[in-house]
Write a protein that binds this DNA or RNA. Structure first.
Length: 397
DNA sequence: TCTGGGGTCCTAGGACCC
DNA sequence: TCTGGGGTCCTAGGACCC
């Protein structure tokens, strides 16, 4: 018996201002205030004798850090993630500045993903604060409920949101549509604490008026090129014929743009994945000179190689391609890599291979950033748990 | 007050092999 | 000797994402 056709339901779940919201659980007195997360270790809150805490203000920051996350109150001042902290300080000098605590966010990430998995196990990891979920075959997903043709799947999404809140105290926003592309856009439409359900019929009214940059995969470059072609909205993109887009953007990307604008995307939710590369990099407080600052560069270079080696060992991988990355004072970036005869997770071998790569770089300009990378990874050890690991499980245990 | 750190994927040319 | 394809690997750069 062939199974009856079913409506694909894919959710995109995005935690609201994730890092900042986790910090607010720890420091509830900051509720409602402009807070930005970013920078190094230098601005830890200080506990006063009377038990209250003293927080660093953005105005006191000096350095090259950027904002990782800002609370909604801070965003009202025009600051946003990716913005340099010095620039943000000019806009919101009194905003509270907190350092990034990756370990703490990782713990909350595991909790929220476990809470989702209790309701819907088909999860694709998209980083620390977002996931895709395939709801298609869950009981009730194909049901309609009185006055709501998609009431069944809507109820599932609400159950997921409730579970996440119960497990973490945090809110999230969900987009729920027939595919990943539309769900990703939809989850942004009603933030924070939103739930947006769309079908193909909603495309012209809800999606087409939006700027093309809302499409995941259209970045600064493609966005600017589209603008120059007189294409600002997704609807305007949908109005162009494929041939013209292929001419401008090439076969593959041109066709993809056309499909995306028409809400077409049949990518599956991928629950298992293997890492492709592991890297460590650092930006210096000041640009370093290859000759004058040789000692410091050498020390950092070795440290980065050691960190990559320890990351590989901890996670049970070896890399056969070792590479380096340099960014110069003018922000130009170069990479060099070298493929070894056999994969390695040894700090000395990585350091030596990286040193070979460094010999092929012209070092007349001063250096802003230095990085070391291992690619072409193979497992060097058995899996941590016997049964096949899913991407979601990897986060959970 | 310019622009962090950790990733993925794609393209393109040259080497090398059949 | 000249003239071909096709396939895969290696390397470098770049777009994009969280």
């Amino acid at each position: 018996m062939p199974s009856p056709p079913r409506h694909r339901w894919i959710a995109h779940l995005d935690m609201d201002a994730f890092y900042a919201s986790v910090e607010l659980l720890r420091y509830p007195e900051l509720e409602g205030q402009p807070v930005v997360i970013g920078g190094g270790r230098r601005h830890q809150p200080v506990q006063r004798a009377d038990g209250t805490r003293e927080f660093a203000r953005l105005a006191t920051y000096a350095g090259r850090g950027v904002i990782t996350t800002a609370t909604y109150a801070a965003r009202d001042y025009g600051v946003h993630s990716g913005m340099g902290l010095m620039k943000a300080a000019a806009l919101a000098p009194q905003a509270v500045l907190l350092p990034v605590d990756h370990d703490e966010y990782k713990r909350y990430s595991r909790r929220f993903k476990a809470a989702v998995a209790e309701v819907a196990p088909l999860i694709e990891d998209r980083g620390i604060d977002e996931i895709y979920i395939d709801l298609t075959d869950l009981p009730g997903a194909q049901d309609s409920v009185a006055h709501d043709p998609h009431g069944g799947v809507r109820a599932l999404a609400l159950e997921i949101k409730n579970n996440v809140r119960r497990a973490t105290g945090l809110s999230c926003s969900i987009g729920l549509t027939p595919n990943k592309l539309l769900s990703k856009i939809a989850s942004e439409l009603d933030k924070p604490d939103g739930l947006t359900l769309l079908t193909a019929a909603d495309l012209p009214r809800q999606i087409w008026p939006l700027p093309v940059r809302r499409i995941n995969g259209i970045g600064p470059k493609a966005g600017a090129k589209l603008k120059a072609l007189g294409i600002g909205t997704i609807g305007e993109l949908a109005g162009r014929d494929v041939a013209g887009l292929v001419e401008q953007f090439g076969r593959s990307y041109g066709r993809w743009l056309h499909d995306a604008a028409h809400g077409l995307d049949d990518r599956p939710v991928v629950t298992v994945s293997e890492p492709v590369s592991m890297s460590r990099e650092t930006t210096f407080d000041r640009d370093l000179h290859a000759r004058r600052d040789r000692a410091e560069l050498t020390r950092v270079f070795t440290e980065l190689a050691e960190q990559v080696a320890s990351d590989l060992q901890r996670q049970g991988y070896s890399g056969r391609t070792i590479g380096i990355k340099l960014r110069f004072e003018d922000f130009k970036t170069v990479t060099r890599d070298l493929t070894l005869d056999a994969p390695t997770d040894d700090a000395g071998s990585i350091r030596r291979a990286a040193g070979q790569c460094l010999k092929r770089v012209d070092l007349t300009r001063r250096i802003r950033l230095l990085g070391v990378r291992a690619g072409t990874l193979v497992r060097s050890r058995g899996l941590p748990t016997a049964p096949a690991r899913t991407a979601a499980d990897g986060e959970l245990f």
